[in-house]
């Protein structure tokens, strides 16, 4: 992406556009053709893609391998589930509500706050320690929700009514998909602006050579923490969407294996590329669907595919189609 020639930029633009168009149009066409199931699959894909895109900001562009990113999906989902639960069964009038705007506000606010506090601690560490500490924070929240008997604990919580928005009814499958899809487009656009902004340059510079960035005069910690909070907030948003989509939430959404899957999506599709995480999420969702219909041990062939992808497309599958600086 750096100082790429006009041709290269145009080509990459087309690749990204094709990916976005396909993921939007194909599910709708299948739905019209009577294959309604695939629309559900696509909605799940888009929700996970938003989470993966948010992870990509810190992992792909910032070089911070967070192994606890799914925690924000959980926080976002419970930010929908808990107010809806109280709106149905009483108590906690302060937050009891079906109002979608409140849900999203809570999801983003709590995710940001959690990211700020845990990020401020985690980002003091580097490398493997950062991986372990983010995972530990994730597991803490996992067990926190397991211990909340009111909201189903281990068994999870069924959301009786989806978030309510004026004029937009999420109960309609097409509306649900379109809402998620449009939000994803906005997130990708925001990502495009962020990574090319001054902030984005600092973030990517610090990934490449933190010592040099500090020597230039950047307090890299502050910039990384900001990226961590942005990523957390966006992932919380994806959690609120996912909770609305599945109408069932449980601590299992937060488990560290879920965080691992998000990392798979980013690396498989292409870390540090705009549409890569979406490609990764699409492949993940389809593979999960196809492979798990053959065997409950679907992670095994999935793992083999991941190894092959890492060996033969080190920068992710999307990079096979993208032009890089110096290619032309």
């Amino acid at each position: 992406m750096f100082s790429l020639s006009k041709n290269g930029r145009a080509r990459n633009g087309w690749v990204n556009f094709t990916v976005l168009a396909c993921t939007g149009v194909i599910p709708l066409l299948l739905y019209v053709a009577g294959q309604t199931f695939y629309l559900d699959l696509a909605t799940r894909m888009v929700c996970l893609a938003i989470a993966a895109i948010s992870l990509n900001l810190i992992l792909g562009y910032g070089g911070m391998v967070s192994f606890g990113h799914a925690v924000f999906i959980g926080i976002g989902a419970y930010a929908v589930g808990i107010p809806a639960y109280h709106a149905t069964y009483g108590e906690f009038d302060l937050i009891a509500s079906y109002n979608g705007f409140l849900h999203i506000l809570l999801a983003v606010a709590f995710s940001s706050l959690f990211a700020l506090v845990t990020g401020a601690i985690s980002l003091r560490t580097k490398g493997i320690y950062f991986i372990m500490i983010t995972m530990a924070f994730g597991q803490m929240i996992y067990f926190f929700f397991v211990s909340l008997e009111t909201y189903g604990g281990d068994d999870g919580l069924t959301i009786d009514a989806r978030s309510e928005f004026p004029a937009v009814k999420l109960d309609n499958a097409i509306v649900m998909f379109l809402v998620c899809y449009v939000i994803m487009l906005l997130v990708i656009f925001a990502m495009y602006k962020i990574v090319n902004s001054r902030f984005g340059m600092v973030l990517q510079g610090a990934k490449d050579n933190e010592e040099r960035m500090r020597a230039m005069g950047f307090n890299t910690f502050k910039y990384r923490l900001t990226a961590y909070v942005i990523a957390g907030a966006l992932c919380g948003l994806s959690g609120a969407l996912l909770g609305n989509f599945t109408t069932f939430i449980s601590p299992e959404m937060i488990d560290w294996t879920r965080s691992g899957e998000l990392i798979f999506m980013v690396l498989l599709g292409g870390g540090g590329t705009l549409a890569g995480p979406l490609v990764g999420a699409a492949i993940f969702v389809v593979l999960e669907e196809v492979l798990s219909s053959f065997t409950i041990y679907w992670h095994l062939p999935f793992g083999i595919m991941l190894i092959l992808a890492v060996l033969f497309a080190r920068k992710g599958l999307l990079s096979l189609f993208l032009k890089e600086d110096g290619d032309d």
Partner: peptide
């Protein structure tokens, strides 16, 4: 140096470091 960036990007980043804070998220650097 920042190996993955161009020469101009490297120097511009160093200039940027002394032109106020870089919490600017929208305009292309």
């Amino acid at each position: 140096l920042i190996m993955s960036m161009s020469v101009l990007d490297n120097v511009a980043l160093a200039v940027q470091a002394h032109e106020g804070h870089s919490f600017k998220f929208w305009k292309p650097a």
